[in-house]
Design a protein around this nucleic acid. Sequence first.
DNA 1: AAATTCTCCTGAAGGC
DNA 2: TGCCTTCAGGAGAATT
Length: 270
Amino acid sequence: MPELPEVETTCRGIAPHITGQRVSRVIVRNPHLRWLVTKRLEKELTGQTIHSVTRRAKYLLLNTDTGTAILHLGMSGSLKIITATEPPGKHDHVDIVFGRSSLRLTDPRRFGSVHWTRRPVMQHRLIRPLGCEPLSEEFNGDYLYLRSRQRRVAVKQFIMNSHLVAGIGNIYASEALYMAGIHPKRAAGKISRNKYRLLAEVIKEVLNDAIGQGGTTLRDFVNGEGKPGYFRQHLNVYGKAGEPCISCRVPIREIRQGQRSSFYCPKCQK
DNA sequence: AAATTCTCCTGAAGGC
DNA sequence: TGCCTTCAGGAGAATT
């Protein structure tokens, strides 16, 4: 499942290969992604030159003079740069061709998406409602504290609300709460300003560490080595139900919050 | 407004 | 080449 660090790594990995390149062709083999990929993408992206590749939350933006392609990797998607003659596999749904090379979207579960918009991309319906970037200065303890007052939702669901802060995935939410010593079910509105300051810090720390590791995979984003892969982030709690807490040896617990698994240490997190 | 539930899909894992 | 059930998960949409 591509989390924000994987998307950022992908962004940095593909950017040098496609920036300044002109799209010679767009091949949509299967338009049935999360949303139906429209013909407008092929029609309007073809012939355009990518002038920059940026990221907003977990969306990748291929910016051109006439519009923006908005890509999301869902939970099983990946992008890589290939030779345009590379035969497609079963789950290779979209190729954006740049002469002799292509950007290929592979996505077995098809939770990903590709949109095209002519309007300023920040006004797009998928982008506009997003909260701040977790790695920005705007995102800090005070931001969390102020917006959580009177809120009864569990803190884990609170920090995973993309309208508040965009791109903290399920894994890093559990990890950050562990690092901050906060129980995932604590009501968001009952957490102190200081605790939120710590939480915001560890969120940035865990995301930056993962991006740092991703940096080592950027060398060759072409052919095979394309995927950043999933970081060998040493996880303290995620997926470790029953295993002893690294700090106090008490077994890690797993609970469900909003159809999503959460992991925590019952002794270290209050 | 806030909170909760539903939904898309398929590879992997587990039970028998 | 075993078959069937269950589950995970991003996040927008629908519902309460």
